[in-house]
């Protein structure tokens, strides 16, 4: 048999590893369907990392297996191996290559995050309509003009500064649909401030810019729709948001992803993405029912109707918390 040069083997191995990696990166089928504008961005980034990762995995794993077979001690063999203590160019190479890869991934993840709207939480209509004020200052002012216009009330709700905000194409614009999302043990409550609808499921129109204002009543919860690739914790005392466009009509699970108690695993509901016409139909159908508040939600709207100040609400809530039996 003719001797095949080592360089041919290396080249062949390189080509095979590259082909396998690209194939795995594109056909892994590990991610659920894409139903939001952000999903393809995340998936594309994941696919790239999976491709690089597969290549590195195959090279390192291949080297381990090859070396173990090639350099295993045969029966009766004595003595030591080659006394090689290092090789500076080789070490520089395998320091530099991962460094370059992670620099590339770092820059790329900033870019992806920016396109997802991750760098723009707090970019709301309120911001463009009013001069921005720190949330605390606004809250402090609110009680003095409780009887006045609706804009003061709007401002009284602290503006989320944390989460996934406006993606570049909707920056500076008001969202099409706003939903207040409240997490509690063990349910999600969806309130539509403009229509007064309160629902246990999230209904949104496809292709519209949706803003979820997340809050939590008792413990930390986390709002996750796997098909949207979006997740944000709902934290007591820290308003957060998720802003996105759903791209596909359908029904998807809403999952609580932060341990919130014994029935955390059962804290599931669904998001129904409608066509715009179906969404309007759903809204007009439910608006009629929504006149009487049935959910013990002390949103600002109800506070205003009853003539209670936010301070009083805070006190009442603090008291009920302190007297709940779970506390003792």
């Amino acid at each position: 048999m003719e001797q095949i040069p080592a360089s041919i083997w290396t080249l062949t191995a390189g080509v095979v590893v590259t082909l396998i990696s690209f194939w795995v990166g594109h056909h892994h089928g590990l991610l659920p369907e894409q139903a939001s504008e952000q999903a393809p961005l995340v998936d594309n980034f994941f696919d790239i990392m999976l491709t690089i990762g597969t290549a590195l995995f195959l090279v390192v794993q291949g080297a381990i297996i090859l070396f173990v077979i090639r350099y295993r001690r045969r029966a009766g063999e004595e003595g030591d191996g080659l006394p090689v203590e290092g090789n500076l160019p080789l070490e520089a190479f395998w320091t530099a290559i991962p460094a370059l890869i992670v620099i590339f991934l770092g820059i790329y993840s900033v870019d992806i995050f920016q396109r997802m709207g991750g760098l723009n939480p707090g970019d709301h209509a309120m911001h463009s309509m009013h001069t921005p004020k720190p949330a605390m200052a606004v809250v402090a002012e609110a009680p003095s003009k409780t009887t006045s216009d609706a804009t003061a009330l709007l401002a009284a709700a602290p503006t989320p500064e944390i989460g996934i905000g406006a993606s570049p194409d909707v920056q500076g614009k008001a969202p099409d649909v706003v939903v207040d999302v409240t997490g509690m043990q063990y349910a999600w409550i969806f309130t539509y401030p403009d229509s007064g609808i309160v629902s246990g499921e999230l209904h949104i129109p496809v292709g519209k810019d949706v803003q979820l204002n997340l809050s939590a009543r008792d413990v930390i919860h986390s709002f996750w729709v796997p098909q949207f690739r979006l997740k944000q914790d709902a934290i007591p005392g820290v308003p957060t948001e998720l802003r996105f466009k759903a791209t596909k009509v359908g029904t998807y699970p809403v999952v609580c992803a932060e341990l919130c108690g014994g029935y955390h695993g059962a804290m599931r509901t669904q998001v129904i993405v409608h066509t715009p016409e179906d969404f309007e139909a759903w809204r007009s159908q439910n608006q009629a029912i929504a006149t009487a508040p049935v959910i013990p939600s002390l949103s600002d709207r109800h506070v205003e109707e009853m003539g209670v100040t936010p301070q009083l609400v805070a006190q009442v809530e603090a008291m009920t918390h302190h007297h709940s039996p779970a506390k003792l």
Binding site: A63, I64, F67, V68, Y71, G81
Partner: peptide, 9 residues
């Protein structure tokens, strides 16, 4: 991995 290379494992 490089330590394995050329050894008598």
């Amino acid at each position: 991995v490089a330590t394995l290379w050329g050894g008598k494992i």
